[in-house]
């Protein structure tokens, strides 16, 4: 028995060595670049650190100031929530509609699928933000088209604070392709015989969509909704490029991440920005938790 214990100890140790050897890069990354910074950022959020002098402990002052005395925070929240609550449902509805249309056994599926996917592949780049800036400018493509087609002289959609955010929503919806691909894959998983059974039962296409397709697709809808919402909360590049990093005009595109960026990297209020970062993390976490709780009531799982 002592022999055996020694043997298995040795065998285990052998794997320990190899295991930690292979895991080492990840482990270093986890400890140094994730765990450490998470703790540090929480600590910083309770200080007034500015990068110049040592951090002074201020307790929850940053948080109370954010909650009670920061109009730009309120603006950023409003802008971000408006963006999330508009862009995600629109994007998903559009993606689902196109996916359902594509799933009807049309030839050319792979062509359309690829073409529709392209915008979401490149949509996050600076180039597309630049393009958007031109398209919705006063003398931009959209107004040219409106002029040619209807003789309508449009305003600068970008410079107008009441419309600027909607150009960004549009940009997000334009990138519906990856959600569509996931919907398509989900639609393909629904067994055809269910539809055949429903047809025999006399269910019309519209009824089939609402009574069969949609319920069976809820796990995929849920997945897409969570992923896209988290992504929308984190949106940054397009707003930054289109507003020249200001979040303007008059803070109408001040995404939360943009505000965070300004506080941290133009005003060097690291402590305050850390508190902002934690609030964002908590919002995303709360939103995710809420989705999961609600999922019990509307997501249909087979198993």
């Amino acid at each position: 028995m002592p022999n055996a214990a020694a043997a298995s100890a040795r065998a285990v140790q052998g794997d320990d060595l190899a295991g930690y050897g292979f895991l080492l890069p990840w482990l270093l990354g986890f400890l140094l670049l994730t765990l450490g910074p998470v703790a540090a950022s929480f600590y910083l959020s309770l200080t007034d650190y500015s990068g110049l002098s040592a951090p002074n402990w201020v307790g929850i002052e940053n948080y109370t100031r954010i909650a009670t005395d920061d109009p730009r925070f309120i603006t950023a929240m409003t802008v971000t929530f408006t963006f999330v609550l508009l862009s995600v449902p629109l994007k998903l509805i559009f993606a689902l509609g196109v996916a359902v249309a594509l799933n009807k056994g049309l030839t050319g599926l792979s062509f359309f699928r690829a073409v529709f996917y392209l915008p979401s592949l490149i949509g996050g780049s600076v180039a597309i933000a630049v393009l958007w800036r031109q398209v919705f400018a006063g003398d931009g493509l959209l107004n040219q088209a409106l002029h040619t087609l209807f003789g309508y002289e449009g305003p600068s959609w970008i410079a107008n604070p009441s419309t600027s955010l909607y150009t960004l929503v549009l940009l997000a919806v334009w990138q519906f392709g990856s959600s569509m691909i996931i919907f398509l894959a989900g639609l393909r998983q629904i067994p055809q015989d269910i539809y055949e059974a429903a047809s025999i039962d006399g269910a019309q296409p519209v009824r089939q969509f609402f009574k069969i397709t949609l319920p069976l697709l809820t796990p995929v809808i849920f997945f897409n909704a969570v992923i896209q919402t988290i992504d929308a909360f984190k949106a940054f590049t397009s707003a930054f490029v289109i507003s020249d990093g200001t979040g303007g005009p008059i803070d109408s595109t001040l995404f939360y991440t943009l505000y965070l960026y300004q506080e941290a990297f133009t005003n060097f209020r690291f402590g305050y920005a850390s508190a902002l970062a934690w609030i964002l993390v908590l919002i995303i976490a709360a939103f995710t938790a809420l989705s999961f709780l609600s999922a019990r009531y509307w997501v249909h799982y087979d198993d």
């Binding site: 022999n3 043997a7 298995s8 065998a11």
Partner: peptide, 17 residues
């Protein structure tokens, strides 16, 4: 599969490890 107890020998030589 490591041997938890007892002995395996081949050609008279212990082979557990």
């Amino acid at each position: 599969e490591p041997i938890s107890g007892g002995e395996l020998s081949i050609g008279g030589i212990r082979m557990n490890e």
